[in-house]
């Protein structure tokens, strides 16, 4: 099983991954949660949802988030892939999912997820992370800066708001 860190009520905790991510080919397992690559959604997405299971979608960094709009409310997980840590498209995808499309379910960063990116990921709205780092390391990176300068998909007040309230 993949190791996951989840951000739950402001704390980073180790969690087991109770979803199976489907490979490009092959049939889904008989039961349990599944994450379907967007490219295969058309073949099996509706069927899996109709079975009453927990279903997620995995986006590559090139997939447009708008493609999820028709099913977003029924998804349990959206997994956004970072094929290499310096491919930053996933950050904009996350911001759009949270602030534009109103997605409130689990938003999972998968692929090349480094501890030094924790603060970017958290600020852009991710709340689950496929990583080998420990929750303590992840928390330290995510909390590195006491202040932030700009609004993102989290609820941290930017410096210009903090200054108004001092």
């Amino acid at each position: 099983m993949q190791m996951l860190i989840r951000l739950e009520a402001g704390r980073f905790v180790r969690a087991a991954d109770d979803f199976i991510t489907l490979a490009a080919e092959g049939d889904p397992p008989a039961d349990g949660g599944v994450i379907v690559p967007l490219a295969h959604w058309a073949e099996m997405g509706e069927r899996l949802l109709s079975e009453g299971r927990e279903v997620g979608v995995r986006l590559t960094s090139a997939d447009p988030v708008e493609a999820l709009l028709p099913v977003l409310e029924r998804l349990s997980v959206v997994a956004v892939e970072f094929p290499i840590f310096r491919d930053g498209r996933g950050y904009s995808a996350a911001v759009l999912l949270r602030t534009r499309l109103g997605y409130r379910g689990e938003l999972r960063a998968v692929g090349d997820v480094l501890v030094d990116q924790a603060w970017n990921l958290v600020r852009c709205g991710f709340d689950a992370f496929e990583t080998n780092a420990s929750p303590e390391q992840f928390a330290a990176s995510a909390h590195r800066f006491r202040h932030v300068y700009q609004a993102s998909a989290d609820d941290r007040p930017p410096a210009f708001v903090e200054r108004e309230t001092v």
Binding site: Y91, W119, Y149, Q150, S152
Partner: peptide, 13 residues
Amino acid sequence: RQWSSFHPEFTYL
């Protein structure tokens, strides 16, 4: 300067 410093979305352009 402030907006672009440690911008979480635009650090890996």
